[in-house]
Amino acid sequence: MTVMSAPMTFAVPSLCSPHAVSSGTPTDHAGAAACCLLEIDRVSLRFGGIKALNDVSFDIRSGEIRAIIGPNGAGKTSMLNCINGFYRPSSGHIVFEGVRRTHTRPSIAARGGIARTFQNVALFKGMTVLDNIMTGRALKIRSGILKQLIRFGPALSEEIEHRRKVEEIIEFLEIQAIRKTPVGKLPYGLQKRVELGRALAMEPRLLLLDEPMAGMNLEEKEDMSRFIVEVNRTYRTTITLIEHDIGVVMNLSDRIVVLDHGCKIADGTPAEIKSNQQVIEAYLGVGG
């Protein structure tokens, strides 16, 4: 394909200075603070000598599908880990719903409404599909230990109410037939779907998906794309996803951040990213 230079300059990759990187498309920058669900502010992450993230800044707006792409080892997973408190950034801030933090903890992020899935499925292998998704309701169940012990009256009604919500998700993800199967016995593609179900059960405001389609065949990818779009449309859930399949990313996402060697090298709409020189170089392995 013909390589066209982008209409705007993005960054100098080798230096990776934060000020050279434009964040978001300049045209619709006005009022971004108001609709901004999450803002990454100059986050760096170091592992010994390795800089997994280097002064990365970008924002995630309410209701959008935001993709993070980049070559292997670019720091995409590390970015998600910083957002939901799995890793602690060496410097920088993360502003979620107006609250500025330098770091958080996964359980606090969960309480704040951030759900996520993992690159290599992190399900509860010994539990059934139904129970796995039910665990996603853990924060919403109010009955105390004594009520659960007796499992009668209000405690049972509450269980049933949550079960109904979970069944809606099971129906939405089309996994009714396997609801009582232990997840350890399911093929990989279905496990990914169950993991999405568990995240959805939390009714998150921000959903982080780490390579939700890795290792899937075409049909499975199409199904998963449909689920992601539908979640975004029907529940207005903001979604941030990491994905290597560029075709899928271009189709699904509203805006894309490109990372390479821990630095942000581009940020913009799919069309802008497609024609960005540095992105092409990063993917062809000639840049840097």
Partner: peptide, 30 residues
């Protein structure tokens, strides 16, 4: 009582921790 507990929220939290404690934490289980 035990069979009630293990089928309820607390039992699921225990099994979640048994099967994968980091994943349990990301769904908000302490």
């Amino acid at each position: 009582g035990a069979s009630n507990l293990v089928r309820g929220n607390l039992g699921r939290q225990w099994m979640a921790i048994r099967d994968m404690d980091i994943a349990a934490e990301i769904i908000g289980i302490r």
